[in-house]
Write a protein that binds this DNA or RNA. Structure first.
Length: 329
DNA sequence: TTAGGGTTACAG
DNA sequence: CTGTAACCCTAA
């Protein structure tokens, strides 16, 4: 019980070879989250053995993964300190059972990920256990956000995340399917329906409603991403025809993202180009745009410090790609 | 091997 | 000093 590593004199016990602490890199953390999404929490050894993560997590042990996952969950749970496990968080029950579809997710526009976090000054004193009965739609968004999977998260991954976090009702899968569909229809989420190859270009098909890809070599993935919030054109009908042309357009988007200005002239210019292209060409161009976006995401993961900005740019690029794909139907 | 409790290092 | 993250120990 009492841990006595050494007599109090010699406390300067360094790690294996003089490594004080091994801070987790964002890359490793992402790999861990992805691994949990794939294999489930608790399968640390399995995750460690997965060739997709073994390279990144080579220096970590299964215990390290377990501890890190615990830290992530503790931090994500909104509760400040977890040295004292006063009450088990198992009392959280998902009660928002939509009888029909009375879940008003239209009001989830601006106040989405803002947590109250009223711990100003003193620590949690009265907040014994949180009664924060989470909303399912918020949980979905949180799952996708936390998992940070480059190609989005599948329903199974989202369900697994939620089940890891709280006691979910047995019909979670069904509720999840309904809620995800609503979120997708309301453009809060972007659905990755498939990947395809067209004339050498490999891309993804993002849909926000019903559409089908009849092109060659399509395989369904059914993963979901957070829909980026774009200035204006997302609500305009006429601007549904948008298109990118590879990295050139991406750089344009980056500039746009910086200034937050998307002029009508720019949209018209894109429309002009779009009208000269066939659906196939548009698909290829959209594919390239997505590829650029993915490259930006990869770079962001390597350079963990500027991950936010780069990923944001990537998402904007993907939004354009999605708009282009929508135009195809 | 994993889930926890417990400990140490580090940043604020 | 305090809280947090990385690490350690051990029962199951």
């Amino acid at each position: 019980m009492v841990q006595t590593p050494l007599p109090g004199k010699l406390k300067l016990v360094y790690r294996s070879m003089g490594a004080p602490k091994q801070k987790w890199r964002a890359e490793e953390e992402s790999a861990l989250k992805a691994g949990v999404a794939k294999h489930g929490a608790g399968k640390w050894s399995t995750i460690l053995r997965d060739p997709e993560f073994s390279t990144i997590l080579k220096l970590r042990s299964n215990v390290d993964l377990k501890d890190k996952w615990r830290n992530i969950n503790v931090a994500s749970s909104g509760l400040g300190s977890r040295q004292r496990v006063r009450l088990a968080p198992r009392r959280n029950q998902l009660v928002s059972q939509p009888k029909d579809n009375s879940v008003d997710l239209t009001a989830v526009d601006s106040d989405m990920d803002i947590e109250p976090l009223a711990v100003s000054g003193g620590t949690l004193q009265n907040a014994g256990f949180k009664t924060q009965i989470p909303r399912l739609d918020e949980l979905i968004v949180e799952a996708i956000t936390v998992l940070k999977e480059p190609r989005g998260s599948s329903r199974a991954a989202i369900a697994m995340y939620i089940e890891e976090k709280l006691v979910a009702p047995p019909n979670l899968e069904r509720l999840l399917a309904e809620n995800i569909k609503l979120l997708t229809d309301n453009r809060k989420l972007i659905k990755l329906v498939g990947c395809y190859e067209s004339s050498g270009a490999v891309g993804e098909l993002f849909l926000i409603s019903k559409a089908y890809w009849s092109g060659p070599k399509e395989y369904v993935k059914h993963q979901y991403r957070i829909a980026p919030s774009l200035p204006s054109f997302a609500t305009k009908k006429d601007s549904s025809l948008l298109l990118l042309e590879g990295k050139q357009k991406v750089s344009t988007i980056v500039e746009m993202n910086g200034t937050k200005v998307l002029t009508k002239a720019q949209i018209d210019a894109e429309l002009e180009k779009m009208r000269r292209m066939t659906a196939q060409e548009a698909a290829a161009a959209a594919a390239q745009a997505v590829a650029e976006a993915e490259a930006a995401i990869s770079d962001a993961e390597v350079a963990a410090r500027e991950a936010e900005d780069a990923e944001r740019d990537a998402e904007v690029a993907q939004a354009f790609a999605e708009a282009a794909m929508k135009a195809l139907k």
